[in-house]
Amino acid sequence: MSSDERDGRRVTRDFVRIRKSALAANDRVAGELRDRFRDAGTLVLNLVSAPGSGKTTLLEQTVRRLRDELSLGVLEGDVATELDAERIRALGVPARQIVTGGACHLESRIVRRALEEAEFPPLDILFIENVGNLVCPTSYDLGEDFKVALVSVPEGDDKPFKYPGIFRRALIAVVTKVDLLPHFSFDLDRVRERVATLNPAARFVAVSSTTGEGVDAWCDLLREALAAKREGRPWP
């Protein structure tokens, strides 16, 4: 600062080594949540897609199939509305809306607070529907077991390579709205290959919430992942 130099002050330059994640604050709380979920035996999925890809509709179909067999809970992230949580509650499954007030992703502290307010019963599976966005949620750990990346047929089969960050991290990749395949030039095998390029371990499933195609296969993956977690095995 020039004024300080005029006053006769000297400036000493120090090199300060840091080497710390720019996400450390979020990751610390996510770690606490993960410990809590492990102790409770709750499988936690963080669902990430563009807006309108069919996350809530798939969750509706999922809870219809699993609600009599497993204890389920849903956190619904949305920029502005309460509608998604109401859709889930209408099916008799506890759901809590998180209205982010414009924020483009959920963070671990927000999830922690929502869980305190939700007072869910002990859960087998907690679904966290993230805010509709394929980029911003990528970096934020919410204490989940894994992320699920969804892309719908109308969005196009190039999505995995356009958003490699999320498809690199997700352990399940879901193509939704496959009932629309006849109307779009969307190559399912190409998506499967692209997903495998980015993450060879990821499981792949193609579903239609309208016809029900693939939804049982998706539910089977959830049962597998839950069983693995309960037995302390890595999955997939």
Partner: peptide, 14 residues
């Protein structure tokens, strides 16, 4: 996504 290091210009006492 990591903060590596920084350069800090400390003001010495006059």
């Amino acid at each position: 996504l990591e903060v590596l290091d920084l350069v800090f210009a400390a003001e010495d006492d006059p």
